[in-house]
Simulated assay, not measured.
Amino acid sequence: MTDHVATKPILSTPTKILELEHLNTASLKKLISGQVLAIRVPEFANATTSARLIQAIDDTATLEHYGHETYEAGRVVQHFYGVHRWGTPFNSTYGKAAGGDAQEKYYADAARMRGLIDSLCAPQKPPIQQLMEQFQALWPQGATAASFQGRPMFCGIIRVMFPETAHLSETVPHVDCLPRTIAELQHQFSANIYLQTPPSGGELIIWDTQAFSYDEVKRFEGAQLPEECLQKPLRIRPRKNELVLINTRRPHAICGFDSGKRVSMQSFIGYTPGEPFYFWC
Rank of each mutant, 00 (worst) to 15 (best):
P140D: 05
N91E: 06
A98W: 06
V77W: 05
G74H: 06
V83A: 13
P123V: 07
M113V: 12
D109M: 05
I117R: 05
A73C: 08
S119R: 11
Q136G: 04
V76S: 02
L138K: 06
Q124T: 05
P127K: 09
Y107G: 11
D109H: 09
M132D: 00
P123G: 05
H84Y: 15
S92F: 07
L131F: 04
G99V: 12
E72A: 05
G74L: 07
R85H: 03
M113E: 11
D118W: 00
G87A: 11
D101I: 07
E72H: 06
A111N: 05
Y71W: 11
A137T: 03
R85K: 15
A111D: 07
Y71G: 00
Y81F: 15
L131P: 01
Q124L: 02
F90H: 15
Y71E: 14
G100S: 02
C121F: 06
G99Q: 01
A98C: 06
W139C: 11
L120V: 14
C121I: 02
R75C: 04
A122H: 11
G95Y: 12
N91F: 06
T93R: 02
V76P: 03
A98Y: 10
Y94M: 04
K96E: 15
W86K: 04
A122Y: 08
A73M: 10
A108D: 09
V77D: 06
W139T: 15
P126F: 02
